[in-house]
Design a protein around this nucleic acid. Structure first.
Lengths: 107, 107
DNA sequence: GTATTTAATCGTAATATTACGATTAAGGTT
DNA sequence: AACCTTAATCGTAATATTACGATTAAATAC
């Protein structure tokens, strides 16, 4: 199929999964690291930083935007992308909480 | 293409991404939650807990095993799956470290 | 031995992802 | 106006993912 049955899982499970999915590509990790470390956030700078074409980077930015991890601010002819720290904090909390319950191993 | 160019990214970026990718499906989140909360870890119990067929669950378990998040211990005719807390701890650290550097927003 | 249970694998179809070049649209510049 | 820059979108091809039923292999039960 290739279609995940989201309706069969809880809201939280789907939320965590879609956030993780957005993080599930090295280019998107690289984009987030770039945004976290650089002062600039112009799309063109991101494109230059990555070994991928402009259209491919744009697609990855779209994925990150879809889950809310980044926001794009139009700045003249350019677009300035920034990490949304609120969404980020929630994602981080969800991912860490996910495993808080692991206290013992059965094998 | 559908092929991510792993050779163009750093080891860490690929590591984080593949870990996140493994977490990028609600069924796999559900499996981990189940393993974290239940005392049992038998494959059949996981299959019963999920709204998916046995073969599909087996495929998801394989994905989690691939990144080392779980280990399978053969127990007679059954297989007992457990979370590997060491791999888990590393994954959690990598994911949280990823964003430690985010201190300011530029827009 | 034969039968049963368990879980991995195979075969398959449907859909999604990744990647690129080409095009488009929108904002500047001259 | 005509031109350039920027980034999104379109069109596309190649590959990956998700899902299931059927089959297989291994362990146990009879």
């Amino acid at each position: 199929m290739g279609l995940s049955k989201t309706e069969k899982f809880t809201e939280t499970q789907n939320e965590i999964a879609s956030m993780a999915k957005a993080l599930g590509h090295p280019a998107r990790i690289a984009i987030l690291q770039f945004l976290a470390q650089q002062k600039t956030c112009i799309c063109g700078d991101i494109v230059n930083d990555l070994p991928l074409s402009q259209s491919t980077v744009s697609q990855h930015l779209k994925e990150l935007k879809k889950v809310g991890l980044i926001k794009g601010q139009i700045d003249g002819p350019s677009v300035c992308y920034c990490i949304d720290i609120n969404v980020l904090a929630k994602a981080r909390k969800q991912l860490t909480d996910l495993f808080v319950e692991v206290h013992e191993r059965c094998c």
